[in-house]
Write a protein that binds this DNA or RNA. Structure first.
Lengths: 241, 241
DNA sequence: CTAATAGTGTCTATTAGACAGTATGTT
DNA sequence: AACATACTGTCTAATAGACACTATTAG
């Protein structure tokens, strides 16, 4: 019921011809990507399993400001680019990644967050299976290490928010599977849940609930120094909502 | 462990002096507010209760583009303004509201969303108790009506997202209470839950779970044409996470 | 055999769903 | 009395937590 005739009438077209964008505040917009993946850190003991850890992709800044510091991969939004387009371009140029699961996280707009000028940044969280992707130009860092690093701009805070988002969504969505390899054991999957939630889970309960989403590949692990484990795959297309 | 001496060294200061913001894409940023409240629509029958509805604040656009159309209250982010500052200013100027609960919703960045120029908009959702606030310059519309209206820009889509956010958070936070009057009956509260979730709830179960968060005022409703109801208030400061 | 992990069975506690049944105002 | 809503009780189903117990491999 829009009586106010959309399809821009003559007066509106005239207004748009006169419009001077330059009069408005010179604020730029960037997109930053928090790319999260799970790495395996080989165990010290032949009996033990490889421990996993949450990792995030960082790039070393080659220009001022924060030259030499690590930062999240990011870049300016072009005039004819959507936020998602910018994200894709940034991921491709700065990390070599394409076609990975991403969702918008939060927009950071404090006035002094960039020393150059006023820049508002829209942060995205992306999840990847490290084993299926190769990275160029960026480097994986464990979140433990990142906590002790001072990243450029407000990027430490962005990572904080990303981890909160993961914790918040893990129990009612299937987002974790974006970070898992094609095939995995239930113990490996459980460890990832534990890393994100920051607490131990009960194996029996975990198997019960997660079991419905998994499909047995028929394969087993071998040479693990203890009882071998069934290998599973994710049954359905991930549920992200 | 930031070896790269923050506190901008001489070279970095030099870089910043030379920096020309004008070279970058002329994109503007706006903030739009989806202000949600619960209205009471008086019943037709003396025996029946007033039915409630979800309402959203809209303003009539006085300038091009979309002159004469309704839109969400919004405005440009100033060069020295955080997103939250802009939100406060916009709410105050266009609706007369201040000190209301707000959270960032989503940033909309499609290229053609504004005919004037490239404008990225950061949308916030705000929740108010209609009975405690008076509005100036804006007007309440029921969501049913809004579904049949064509709002300016992508504002219909923003409202869609806002309602999704409410549905998503209502069961694990106490956000509803931001929309409730100081005192209310459990039936009224249940109706608001039902409006947001779009389905009927079982009274017994609802009372059980919500009861813990409420405190009896000792008062009762009167002249309602049927059994009177206890009147409650919210016990604790709202949990928003 | 032992260390280390895999996997099952079962009891209990908590919570949600269903629904009948009782209570109490106004006209 | 009858209408409309308020409120309680209780049975059942589903789910999560706890934990003991059994199974299986490499060395």
């Amino acid at each position: 019921m829009n009586g106010t005739n959309r399809m821009a009438d003559e007066k509106e077209r005239e207004f748009l011809r006169q419009y001077q964008p330059e009069e408005y505040a010179p604020i730029s917009i960037t997109v930053d990507a928090i790319v999260v993946g799970v790495a395996k850190d080989t165990a010290d003991n032949y009996r033990k399993l490889d421990r996993q850890s949450l990792n995030i992709l960082l790039v070393k800044r080659e220009h001022y400001p924060y030259k030499g510091c690590y930062s999240l991969p990011g870049g300016f939004v072009g005039e004819k680019e959507t936020l998602e387009d910018t994200l894709k371009r940034v991921l491709s140029d700065k990390t070599g990644l394409s076609d990975i699961y991403s969702e918008q996280l939060y927009t950071f707009g404090s006035v002094e967050r960039d020393p150059r000028m006023r820049i508002v940044s829209c942060a995205y969280i992306s999840l990847v299976d490290i084993s299926r992707t190769s990275i160029t130009g960026a480097q994986w860092f464990g979140i433990e290490d990142i906590c002790n690093m001072e990243l450029a701009f407000d990027h430490n805070q962005m990572i904080e928010e990303a981890l909160k988002r993961l914790r918040g969504k893990i129990n009612y969505t299937d987002i974790v599977f974006h970070m898992m390899p094609a095939e995995f054991t239930i113990s490996e999957l459980q460890e990832v849940y534990e890393l994100i939630l920051g607490k131990k889970l009960l194996p029996a309960a975990f198997r019960r609930t997660i079991g419905e989403k998994l499909e047995d590949t028929g394969k087993m692990t071998s040479n693990v120094g203890h009882r071998p484990s069934r290998i599973f795959r994710y049954k359905e297309p991930p549920q992200d909502r």
